[in-house]
Amino acid sequence: MMSYFFQLLVSGIVVGSIYALAALGFVLIYKSSKVLNLAHGQIIAAGAFITYALTGWVGIPIYLSFLLSMVITFFLAMSVEKIFLRRLIGEPIISIIMVTIGLMSILDGIIFLTPFGSVNFSFPQFLPQELISFGGVSISWTQLVGVIITAIMIGGFSWFFKKSTVGISMRAVSDDQFASMSVGISVPRVFGLAWATAGLSAAAAGGIIGNITGLNFETLQAFGITVFPIVILGGLDSILGAVVAGIIMGVIQQFASGYLDGNFGLNGTAEVLPYIILLIILLFKPHGLFGIHEIERV
């Protein structure tokens, strides 16, 4: 019984850390430009598919194609920002959010055009198949490597924001756009960079989750949409919040599917629980766990 608990906990942390990586990009865009990017799930899916296309069809080794897909989505997200969102700076925030809804639809359409929309693929196995187990808790190599890469990337991002000049300028823009303009930071450039880094982290999350669960567009979409409850739980503008809430949500989902499903006549609770949590959070603690309290109130 106890080992079942720990097994669920471990797989929850695995999924949760990937959620954290995916949510990171979302928070980044929100923090710098106050745009709620509803197309984030589709960028995650696109990252996974680009990784697969490079390995499976072009034949590049998976490590390289993982990096390459991050580079591609980096520029993809940057150009999305440049083409669509740059013109809308100064428009009411509601129309910018609706533009991201439109982008979500466009990206859906583009993915449906490719074989990924209808056929399921899975990555070639490049890691040992056997499970690593200690004390009754087992974890596959894919999961372990995924968690390690995720941890490294989250660490890298934290360093980037805390120490590097570009990261500091991004934080400055999120704090006060006029003040940062007056000290010589190019605000549009920072917006572009925020989108680009968000795309990069989304592609990384997509690549890792694609390796673990296989490439099914609907699963990846559901994974992408779960990012929204996570960022609300963590607080929309907190990177730490995104990481913590991602792990919490992953663990909750695993426990739900481990303990609730099949017990009280319930089924598939992991899919719906995040949204119930989201509604409850919105009603009682809308700034989330780590968000700044001066959120927009009526």
Binding site: I97, E271, L282, L283, I295, E296, V298
Partner: peptide, 19 residues
């Protein structure tokens, strides 16, 4: 949630109702 919040969050509330 609109009693306390503005549009950004309401988009999320309606999305979660959809799900």
């Amino acid at each position: 949630p609109a009693m306390r919040l503005k549009h950004l969050y309401l988009a999320m509330a309606t999305l979660s109702f959809q799900m």
